[in-house]
Design a protein around this nucleic acid. Structure first.
Lengths: 350, 350
DNA sequence: AAGTCGTCTGGGAGCGCTCCCAGAATGGGA
DNA sequence: TCCCATTCTGGGAGCGCTCCCAGACGACTT
């Protein structure tokens, strides 16, 4: 009857990390019992559990995750993939919020977040390889551009994926959580109409971006609903501040009488404010401006503070994580898009 | 003589991922040869190498990283740890730059970035456990607060760590890459002096933050060097915009004659501009304002565009990664702090 | 007294990979 | 012709863990 009674001393060489076997020997039990105690399985006597936990503490034991996930086939890690050109991710505070919210949300469910950026097409194979490599149990993906090869590549993956925002490609058969961009744009335009504006222009995002296209559609709908002409009042931007500035300059040229601007992002609204100021127009007296995103560190900080369509990235992440967890738990969830409502945060600019 | 001649068909069950053994069998070689071919070792005939690579492609093989790192004891992943309260990371665009730069830099060296946030003391044990768990080969850590328990805990770790910014605790024996905050502050103040300001106030960051303390020290030094009194001209902030606003309001009360402000961050400078505007002072005519960080998406966007001390987070990350790679390669690098120079980006605010 | 249950334990197998080593094939020299 | 170095190959061991299974033990019932 092999009864471990001798207590081996802790390992001397400091870079040799103790293994489960070491802990077991030190505690005077078997590897199996040690494993059970550490993973608080049932069927371990309080006595051996205590001995094992003490041993683990004494030896400074921490389990080797590679070994564990080799057998459990789980990593307890989830990738967050941002597929956007570098400049975009840097400038747009939306992504900072997303990253942090994702971290909190995943940490709360005991899952480690692995953040990945996909800057260009060149990064796609590396990303796929990584996701395939069994590093993660699943992925939350933000890939908003039409024609982004990533979503298509991900379809073939053996890893569950939930998209944030409608992916550029056909979204049938994928899990996604999106904001109601169209309704948000309508809210913005209706607010401008209510404050007496009649010549309401829009600065759009990149139109290969479904969210941008939806915001444009919402603007158009709200104006047509009110029976107001909008010919020549739309100008394309790319979500950056500079593009907002350029767009307004062009619009003022075409339509000097404009009295309202709906910018499809807060940053473009910031550019718009700058261009309007330069052109000698005051906001909100001459022109009312409404943004989109209502980023807490941008919109209220502008002068004047920006009225903006409020969306809550935290809620988006929350829903995405919830869906992903359901998938990981093997629940039979039908792939579909969850649509989150948006509201209007009214400040001084309109 | 066991010669694998039969070509087994690809596995049918789609969620069963092919293993190296499968690839080897399909290619008609042994597991060892397949491994050598895929890791392009020497001593593999061109013929078998080709067969193996074809097989891997046909079967859609991707190696199991857990199994690999179990034996190699390497993960080819590095953690980036941001130890800051949530609000800070969200608001401060500096961190967005850091994250992205780290990703690019690490990807270029073939290393995957794992991003971790440490919001509160409660997160420390989990973080330590993760880093200890063999998930990563090393870590880049931003933990700027004095009294942050993380750096001390990391000392006991068997994982190489490089700090970004001087860690709050004693930095002896640690690797770190910092900016020359003191010199930056002196640059800012000298510029204000050169433009004729004489009553130059400062809004500091949290003073448990070595960087904030250094910037304060630089401000004081430059003024004393010029023989100018600075009593009562320093007010504590916490790097946020709101705190900048509050601080300036308080300073104007105490010293209505102030004609220069050095804010220890761009966001606080933004708050300062707002408070000055509210008090009826114009910038730069009545008061010159200089910020710190020169964040590309903040400083140039202000009205007026902000003169700010320019630091380059990319360079910081570059140096940090370089150092970490040296440590991982086993090079005998003496622990020390690399000090990066800063410059002054002159715009309209001063 | 023998049987049955529930609790607890140790050993073995095996996850998928890399490394080491022995041996087979190959290609020159002596 | 033989022999040695060189190139190439396959099998075995083992990384550290979890899971399964068989068995030990005690506390019950029959």
């Amino acid at each position: 009857m092999p009864r471990y009674t001798l207590r081996v001393p802790p390992r001397c060489s400091q870079d040799e990390r103790p293994t489960l076997e070491d802990v077991a020997a030190y505690a005077g039990v078997s590897r199996s019992t040690a494993s059970r105690a550490l993973n608080d399985d049932a069927y371990v006597s309080p006595r051996s559990r205590a001995k094992v936990l003490d041993a683990a503490r004494d030896l400074g034991y921490s389990p080797n995750q590679a070994a564990r996930s080799l057998v459990t086939r789980r990593t307890d890690a989830v990738a967050v993939v941002l597929s956007e050109p570098e400049a975009k991710v840097l400038d747009d505070p939306y992504f900072a919020t997303v990253m942090h919210a994702a971290y909190r949300e995943l940490a709360a469910t005991g899952v480690q977040m692995l953040l990945m950026f996909v800057d260009s097409r060149d990064d796609v194979p590396r990303t796929i390889r990584f996701l395939e490599g069994g590093h993660v149990d699943g992925a939350l993906v933000f890939a908003p551009h039409q024609g982004d090869p990533l979503p298509t590549a991900l379809r073939l993956l053996r890893v569950p994926v939930v998209f944030g925002g409608r992916p550029g490609t056909k979204s049938r058969g994928t899990h996604a959580v999106d904001f109601d961009n169209r309704a948000g744009a309508r809210l913005a335009v209706r607010h401008l109409l209510q404050t007496g504006r009649r010549r309401i222009a829009t600065v759009t995002g990149m139109l290969d971006h479904p969210a941008a296209a939806d915001r444009l559609a919402g603007w158009r709908e709200a104006l047509e609903e009110a029976g107001i002409d909008h010919t020549g009042l739309s100008e394309a931007g790319d979500f950056t501040m500079a593009s907002g500035e350029r767009a307004i300059t062009a619009l003022l040229e075409r339509a000097p009488d404009l009295d309202g601007v709906f910018a499809a992002s807060d940053l473009m609204a910031a550019g718009a404010l700058q261009a309007l100021r330069r052109a000698g127009r005051t906001v909100p007296d001459d022109v009312g401006v409404v943004g989109f995103d209502d980023n807490p560190s941008v919109a209220p900080a502008m002068s004047p503070p920006l009225t903006s369509v409020h969306q809550d990235p935290r809620e988006q992440i929350h829903q995405m994580v919830k869906r992903l967890m359901a998938l990981l738990a093997g629940e039979p969830v039908r792939p579909d898009t969850i649509m989150l409502p948006v509201t209007l945060a009214v400040r001084d600019s309109a």
